[in-house]
Amino acid sequence: MSTSLSLEGKRGIVLGIANRHSIAYGIAEVLSEQGAELCITYLNEKSKPFVASLAEKLTTKLFLPCDVSKPDELE
């Protein structure tokens, strides 16, 4: 993909990655390719192993649990 968009020095958080076919993963890939530093979240321990391998491919700085139905995880 050729584009003049540069996200060097920018940071972002991506929620909702379930697997490599997720729209959220596609977005994360493009953000990472354009130089953004990403935080990737996973819903629960069951989903963690599936998302962890994808987060490693994206070389994310933070990999954290985030269930938006739990207020303490949003902080």
Rank of each mutant, 00 (worst) to 15 (best):
S6N: 14
R11C: 12
Y25A: 03
E75N: 01
I27G: 07
A55D: 06
G35C: 08
I27S: 05
G16I: 09
S4A: 15
K10S: 12
S6A: 15
H21S: 14
G16A: 09
E56D: 14
K48H: 12
E75I: 03
G12W: 00
L31G: 06
E8N: 13
V30Q: 12
R20I: 10
I40Y: 00
L38G: 11
S32A: 14
L5I: 14
S6T: 13
L54Q: 09
H21F: 13
Y25G: 03
L74T: 04
T41V: 04
A36R: 00
T60M: 04
E73M: 15
A18W: 01
H21I: 06
A24R: 07
L74V: 11
K10I: 06
A18N: 02
G12L: 08
V30N: 10
S2N: 04
F63T: 05
S47N: 15
K70T: 09
A28Q: 07
E45T: 10
I27Q: 07
E29Y: 05
L7I: 10
E8K: 14
K46F: 11
E75F: 09
T60H: 05
S22D: 06
T41Q: 00
A18C: 04
S53A: 09
D67P: 02
K48V: 05
T41F: 03
E37K: 11
M1Q: 10
E45L: 03
V30F: 10
L58D: 09
D67I: 00
G12S: 09
L64V: 03
I23Y: 12
A28R: 02
A28I: 01
S22V: 09
L43C: 07
T59S: 14
M1H: 11
I23A: 11
K70G: 06
G16L: 01
Y25R: 11
L62E: 14
L62F: 08
K70Y: 05
Q34D: 07
L38M: 08
K46I: 07
C66V: 05
L43R: 10
L54E: 04
I17D: 08
V68H: 13
V51K: 00
N19H: 02
C39R: 02
L7R: 10
S32D: 08
C66P: 02
I27W: 01
T3R: 14
L74E: 10
C66W: 00
S2P: 07
G9T: 01
V14H: 00
S6C: 13
E33F: 09
R11Q: 15
M1P: 02
V30M: 07
K61Q: 14
Y42A: 11
T3S: 15
L54K: 08
I23R: 09
T41W: 07
L58A: 11
L64P: 02
D67E: 12
S32C: 04
S4F: 01
I27Y: 09
I23S: 12
G12Y: 02
S4D: 15
V68D: 05
G35N: 10
S32H: 13
I17K: 01
L7F: 12
